[in-house]
């Protein structure tokens, strides 16, 4: 049903997969996501649609190999099938000509920020994009994004590439030097929180795309609930994007830790099985 057209490892822990999914390719908009299931016993994992090709009927996803599901995904070869791909899900980004837009992507979040940056540029915004990661190996989509940016800034925490430092340091410089009309940030929760706290002091409208734990992705289970402006919101159907200045990031961070122990247990079992079957 959902053939893998291409699946490549970009670095040790980051993969890029192109999947045949014509319906999703046809309808997806920037900011939307899919839920995939790798195999029959797999979990439902939400991944942002980084790119799509309407003519070829394919979508592109980036994933960080962090546990059983993403490791299994990384083992899938061209021509093999995914058990399920559902989407497009969630609200598209509110794309408009705001004036100057700064899109900030951290780690695997760069994949989520990429289609938004492209759409912002196409809508006529002056687009400054800041991408960052812990190190060079975790950086993705730099060249693709460069082609769509008026200005691009790259940072790494360890200085192995680009500017040594955090994306927020660079964002601050921009906010100090010019008028910014909108900031979109996607990345690890601490990064989004830091961006949010920074832009709040400059009073710049900021959107974040949240990566809550999800099951169905259609508003049915409420597992992805977050507190936004003191109210319960479901990331899957009310989001995934929210006004950063209203999001309770600390609560989100705690909820993301819910399955830490089980994820470890599952991954150990998965690796153990692999070793059994492949003698590795």
């Amino acid at each position: 049903m959902y053939a893998i057209i291409q699946n490549t490892k970009i670095s040790e822990n980051v993969g890029k997969v192109v999947i045949e999914a014509p319906y999703i390719a046809q309808h997806r908009k920037a900011g939307q996501f899919v839920i995939i299931i790798v195999d029959e016993v797999g979990e439902r994992i939400p991944l942002t649609i980084a790119d799509a090709d309407k003519e070829k009927g394919s979508i592109t996803l980036y994933y960080q190999i962090v546990g059983t599901s993403t490791h299994k995904l990384s083992l899938k070869k061209e021509g093999e099938q995914l058990y399920n791909v559902a989407g497009p899900l969630g609200h598209p980004t509110d794309i408009r000509n705001y004036g100057t837009a700064v899109c900030v992507g951290g780690g695997i979040g760069i994949a989520a920020v990429y289609p938004i940056a492209v759409a912002m540029k196409e809508a006529g915004n002056y687009c400054i994009n800041i991408i960052g990661a812990r190190n060079k190996d975790l950086l993705i989509l730099e060249q693709e994004l460069k082609a769509k940016s008026d200005q691009i800034i790259v940072t790494t925490d360890d200085g192995s590439y680009g500017i040594k430092g955090f994306v927020t340091d660079e964002l601050k410089k921009i906010l100090d030097s010019r008028k910014v009309d909108i900031v979109v940030a996607v990345g690890p929760v601490p990064m989004m929180k830091a961006v949010s706290e920074l832009t709040r002091t400059y009073n710049v409208k900021t959107l974040v795309s949240l990566n809550s734990i999800m099951v169905d992705g259609t508003g049915m289970c409420g597992g992805c609930r977050v507190t936004v402006d003191g109210k319960k919101q479901f990331t899957c159907v009310d989001g995934p994007e929210f006004d950063a200045h209203l999001v309770d990031f600390d609560e989100l961070m705690k909820r993301l830790n819910t399955y830490k122990d089980q994820e470890k247990e599952s991954f150990e079992k998965h690796i153990c099985q692999l070793e059994k079957y492949h003698g590795r």
């Binding site: 016993v41 439902r44 819910t258 399955y259 089980q262 994820e263 247990e265 599952s266 998965h270």
Partner: peptide, 9 residues
Amino acid sequence: FPEYDTPIV
């Protein structure tokens, strides 16, 4: 679980 990948508390 862990035969199936989805965890539950």
